[in-house]
Design a binder for these strands. Structure first.
Length: 589
RNA sequence: CGGGGCGUAGCUCAGCUUGGUAGAGCGUUGCGUUUGGGACGCAAAAGUCGCAGGUUCGAAUCCUGUCGCCCCGACCA
């Protein structure tokens, strides 16, 4: 392929709409163009990268015996109603000319389960693994970051069907291993994090996360044990009672319980305002949040400097719907305007206290009346929570859930893949059963597994770029080698470049010949911007029989090689680049 | 959905406060010179100032509404 034949519209300036590096570079290097918020066209270079990622995936799917299929994008309303997912808020809906309703596919559990219930009839039909690569549609509340979060995106999604738990576990592990191989092969450092299944399922599930400041997810990591979890579900161990003296005292320094006192705090509604007014720190306060859980009021208590984790609360309460009560409801339940709620004298709601409260003494809470707070509140004496539980978001510095000797650190991450055990969530709802050896009807055990291809491409850029542009790993680079003919008017140069290009193609190396009638500087800038792993320059050295070869990631790697040895040298360099992570990647990891 | 910001030439932006009929750089086109890190000169094309109302003799500029985009938050299989 020649650059002059390939559509690569590079931009000199950074488009104003792009903030994060991958978004800027994808636009500048001519990979994507925006049609609307979260809707993008993949231009030739991007499409080639997507194709490379897809090919790696297909290779690994073949190796675990997972077959490729292609499911419809149009999903009939009745199908989604079987699993109560017609009214999921991200669903795009449309009607046909006969007023029949359809959803644009946002995930394909229902469609694949429909196949399963029709065709997987016997235990002999299981296990079965299937996948597809297809566009998904989700009406995201807020698309962002270029390809990081879009409303229409290319997703690889796979589904497993097993006869029992053990089988499901085996399938789950197969995909985890396959995904690890895929990301390793593309040189993408990742962590496997414990995660929340959200609406898909609430059994075991893991996210494959690429750590990057541009990521949307907060991940807690233990360097020592390798533990990682999304903040949504990272458990917090109950505090050691020995730590009690640290988290004590409303505004005094005595050790005993002090008498409950009410103080005036006019206008102070937030934790910071109250702490400021009373001359203490947020950690000595207790936040009382009133939630409505399937309509019933619940008070959640956490330390002032902690945050309630709604995923944990929802699971604890085992309710479908959970949201913060509005001001009117808060006032009805607590008798005070929002900002002055407290557990003392609170009648009605179930009161759930975070474990941290078990070691707090003489703390501050709202007094359930306007402009007033209690100080020197103590659990047991002044109020009794319905129960203590793990209610808060984990924080850096918290002990690792799998070994309390070590502490967690926090990082941002991009969720590039997600693996779920579904159990019988969909198969039971849709009556997908099979007959076992004993002629008993059993429900199929399912799993679902996904990788966002566009997002993976963006993540690869986030962790591998420099001031000049992208630095692709050879496994997913749009082209592995660019051959820059410095002087396009020189027939010998063009001929030599073309010959090298052809020699590389014969070896199965993707090469791109920059034959444009541009000045050499322009071609160099573009080559750096696009980020081809290897650059060959056909230039001044050609008269003496030499070409210049260098790795994109390392300017100092530039060297002259004889024309006849160039293809060998390039092949060797590509292997070196494939096997060793770049410094940027290593640093990011 | 809440908060903030922005819509002026293909791109990046100025002009708006103080209304007088639209500019720069880059890019594009042509000619010439140049030719290893986004060259130079000359010439040229290119904008219903997001859209709709309103105020005014006159609106890119002021007012109202509306649409779109970006960021933060909420939300997110």
């Amino acid at each position: 392929m020649k650059v002059s034949d390939c559509f690569i519209p590079t931009l000199r300036e950074v488009p104003a709409e792009a903030e994060i590096p991958s978004h800027q570079l994808l636009l500048r290097a001519g990979f994507i163009r925006k049609l609307g918020a979260g809707i993008y066209t993949y231009l030739p270079l991007a499409w080639r990268v997507i194709g490379k990622i897809e090919a790696l995936l297909k290779d690994e799917m073949d190796s675990i015996g997972c077959g490729e299929i292609r499911m419809p994008t149009l999903h009939p309303q009745e199908l989604l109603e079987e699993t109560n997912r017609w009214d999921v808020d991200v669903v795009y809906k449309l009607k046909d000319r006969r007023e029949a309703s359809f959803a644009l596919g946002f995930t394909h559990e229902e469609v694949i389960t429909d196949i399963a219930r029709r065709d997987f009839r016997s235990w002999r039909d299981l296990p079965r693994l299937l996948y597809q690569v297809q566009t998904k549609f989700r009406d995201e509340p807020r698309p962002r970051g270029g390809l990081i979060r879009t409303r229409e995106f290319i997703m690889y999604d796979a589904y497993s069907f097993d006869r029992d738990d053990a089988g499901m576990e085996l399938s789950f592990q197969k995909f985890k291993t396959a995904y690890s191989r895929v990301f390793n092969r593309m040189g993408l450092p990742f962590v496997i994090a414990e995660a929340d299944g959200g609406a898909i399922g609430d059994l075991d599930n893991n996210e494959f996360v690429v750590l990057s400041p541009s990521g949307e997810d907060t991940i807690l990591i233990c360097r020592e044990t390798g533990y990682a979890a999304n903040v949504e579900c990272c458990p917090v161990l109950p505090p050691d009672p020995a730590d009690a003296p640290i988290a004590t005292n409303g505004n005094g320094n005595g050790n005993g319980d002090k008498p409950l006192e009410i103080v005036s705090t006019p206008g102070a509604r937030t934790i910071d305002e109250v702490a400021g007014m009373l001359g203490t720190a947020p950690m000595h306060l207790v936040k009382t949040l009133i939630y409505l859980a399937d309509g019933a009021p619940v008070a959640a208590l956490v330390r002032g400097d902690h945050e309630v984790n709604e995923v944990k609360l929802r699971r604890l309460l085992n309710v479908a719907e959970l949201f913060l009560a509005d001001d009117t409801t808060v006032e009805r339940i607590t008798g005070a305007p929002t900002g002055f709620a407290g557990p003392v004298g609170l009648i009605g709601p179930r009161v759930i206290a975070d474990h941290a409260l078990s070691v707090m003494r003489n703390f501050i809470t709202g007094a359930n009346q306007a402009d007033a707070h209690y100080v020197h509140v103590n659990v047991g004496r002044d109020f009794a929570p319905t129960e203590f539980a793990d209610l808060r978001n984990a924080l850096p510095g918290d002990p690792s859930p799998d070994d309390s000797r070590y502490l967690l650190t926090e990082a941002r991450g991009i969720e590039v893949g997600h693996v779920f055990k579904l159990g019988t969530k969909y198969s039971a709802a849709m009556n997908a059963t099979f007959t076992d050896e004993n002629s008993h009807l059993q429900t199929i055990q399912m799993g679902s597994y996904g990788i966002g291809l566009g997002r993976t491409m963006a993540a690869a850029i986030e962790i591998s770029h420099d001031g000049n542009g992208i630095i692709w790993h050879p496994a997913i680079a749009p082209f592995q080698v660019v051959i820059v003919v410095a002087d396009w008017r020189d027939p010998a140069g063009l001929e030599s470049g073309q010959a090298l290009h052809d020699a590389l193609e014969i070896r199965g190396i993707d090469a791109l010949l920059d034959d444009r009638d541009e000045r050499a500087g322009v071609k160099f800038k573009d080559a750096d911007l696009v980020g081809y792993p290897v650059r060959v320059v056909v230039g001044k050295g050609l008269a003496n029989g030499f070409l210049e070869i260098r790795a994109r990631r390392d300017a100092a790697s530039s060297r002259e090689v004889p024309v006849l040895e160039a293809a060998d040298a390039i092949a060797a360099l590509l292997i070196e680049l494939r096997d060793g992570p770049s410094e940027q990647q290593a640093a990011a990891a």
